[in-house]
Write a protein that binds this DNA or RNA. Structure first.
Lengths: 151, 151
DNA sequence: TCAAATTCGTTTCAGTTGCAACAAATTTCT
DNA sequence: AGAAATTTGTTGCAACTGAAACGAATTTGA
C-alpha cells in the first residue's frame, strides 16, 4: 500500500500560474511586435532601453533588461542591420560598445509604445485590480525575488 | 527634429514584470526539481497530473498542463525509463496511450509536493497579498487570457 | 613595468524547442 | 462497405538558447 498523497492543485499553483500567464502574454506581444514591426521581444526591450534610460552599452542593457549578453549581442546585430541603431566603440575604453538609436529607431519606438500601453491596459481591464496596484505588487515581488535566496 | 517620445517605463510594464517573475520562479523550481529528484519542470507537471487528475493520455495531459505534445511525448519517455510511470495502449482505441504512475512515481510525488508547497508559501510571504487572493487573481487572469482575443 | 587577472562583446557548440511531417488508428460520410 | 478526413503519439528538422571558450582591451598588483 502506497502512502496517501498530500493535497495539491496545479491549476492554482502560483509558479505554474505565472508561467502560463507569462507565456500567453509573451506570445501575444511577440506576435504584435513581429507582425507590425518585424522585431523580436528582445529587440523591443533593447530599443526601449536606449530610448528611456541612459544604458548605452551591451553590458548595461544586459543587466537592465535581464537578457543574456549573447542574446543582446545577437539582437543588436539585427537592429543595426535594419538601421534602427548604430554601434560605436568607446574612445576611452575600447572594449565598450556605445549604442545609439537612429531616427528610424526612435520613430519605431514612438509608434510601438502606444500599442504596448494599449496592450497593457487591456490586460489590466481583465483584472479587478487597479493597474497601478498590479504594477507595484509585481514590482515588489520582482525585487524580493532578485534579492533574497528562495528556498 | 524627431517627435517626442511618449512616456514608458519598462520596469513597471506588466508583461515584462510577468516575464521576469516567471523566469525567476521557474529557474528556482527547476533547480529544486533537478537537484533533489533529477526531473524537469515538464516531467513534474506530468507526474502531478497523473497523481491528481484523471488525465491519463498524452492528449489529455497536453491540454491540461499546456505543454506541446512533442514535449509531453519526450518527457514521458524519460519518466518511463526511470520507472516512474508505465505506458499502456488503450484496448478500445489503440491510438491512445494510457499512462499510470508506478509506486516509485507516486512516492516521488509524495516527497515533492511538500517542497513545492513550501516554495509557494515562501513566494507568497514576499507579497502583502494573501496567498488565496493571489491564486484567485491569477486564476482569473489565466482564464481571461485563454478565452478572449487580446488586441 | 609587466605578468596575471579581469572585463567586454562575439562566437562556438551542444542541448532544447516547437512546428510540421509522418504512420497508425479511428471516425465520418456517402 | 470503403474512401476520405480526422485524430493520436512519435520523429525529423531547423531555429533558438545559454553556457563556456575566445580574442581584444583594460586593470591590478607585485
Amino acid at each position: 500500500m502506497t502512502q496517501d498523497l498530500p493535497g495539491f492543485d496545479l491549476e492554482h499553483y502560483v509558479p505554474y500560474q505565472f508561467s502560463v500567464i507569462s507565456a500567453q502574454l509573451s506570445a501575444n506581444l511577440a506576435a504584435l511586435y513581429r507582425d507590425r514591426f518585424g522585431i523580436s521581444v528582445a529587440e523591443w526591450r533593447i530599443l526601449v532601453n536606449l530610448a528611456y534610460s541612459d544604458s548605452r552599452t551591451v553590458r548595461d542593457i544586459q543587466q537592465r533588461v535581464r537578457l543574456d549578453k549573447a542574446k543582446v549581442s545577437r539582437a543588436v546585430v539585427q537592429l543595426e542591420s535594419r538601421g534602427l541603431l548604430t554601434k560605436e566603440i568607446d574612445g576611452t575604453d575600447r572594449r565598450l560598445l556605445h549604442l545609439e538609436l537612429t531616427d528610424a529607431g526612435r520613430q519605431m519606438v514612438c509608434e510601438l509604445v502606444p500599442l504596448a500601453n494599449k496592450f497593457q491596459d487591456q490586460v489590466a481591464q481583465k483584472l479587478s485590480l487597479d493597474i497601478a496596484d498590479l504594477q507595484s505588487q509585481l514590482a515588489h515581488l520582482m525585487k524580493e525575488l532578485s534579492d533574497g535566496e528562495t528556498l
